[in-house]
């Protein structure tokens, strides 16, 4: 999994959730997102997926916007990575 994908995804999370550099750096693959971050309401989730689509030039299906995808940082990174051309 490429480092630039990881860095860009952290940056998008920082923009949408207003996380500072220390909190972003502390994100590990196991870091829980949904449920752990009170900022992640339905509007924030929709904004987050929109921002990821813009940043990575990918398109998500509605069916992909589930709690499972946002369970932890690894699951979100895997979704984004899977969308990008190899």
């Amino acid at each position: 999994m490429s480092d630039d994908c990881d860095a860009a995804l952290r940056a998008v999370l920082g923009d949408v959730l207003g996380l500072n550099a220390a909190r972003l750096a502390a994100l590990t693959p196991e870091s829980a997102l949904l449920g752990a971050l009170p900022e992640l309401d339905s509007m924030a989730i929709a904004t987050l997926f929109g921002a990821i689509e813009d940043r990575f030039a990918v398109v998500f299906d509605d069916a992909e916007l589930t709690g499972d995808t946002l369970a932890d940082y690894a699951s979100l990174l895997a979704l984004v990575h899977g969308k990008r051309p190899a």
Binding site: S42, M43, I45, A46, T47, F49, G50, D62, L65, T66
Partner: peptide
């Protein structure tokens, strides 16, 4: 783009409440 985002927020909220919307 704005409309899509608003519709998605509603879908996500519905899903969290256990309703299915399309």
């Amino acid at each position: 783009t704005l409309l899509r985002q608003l519709l998605r927020a509603r879908l996500i909220a519905a899903r969290e409440a256990g309703r299915h919307e399309d």
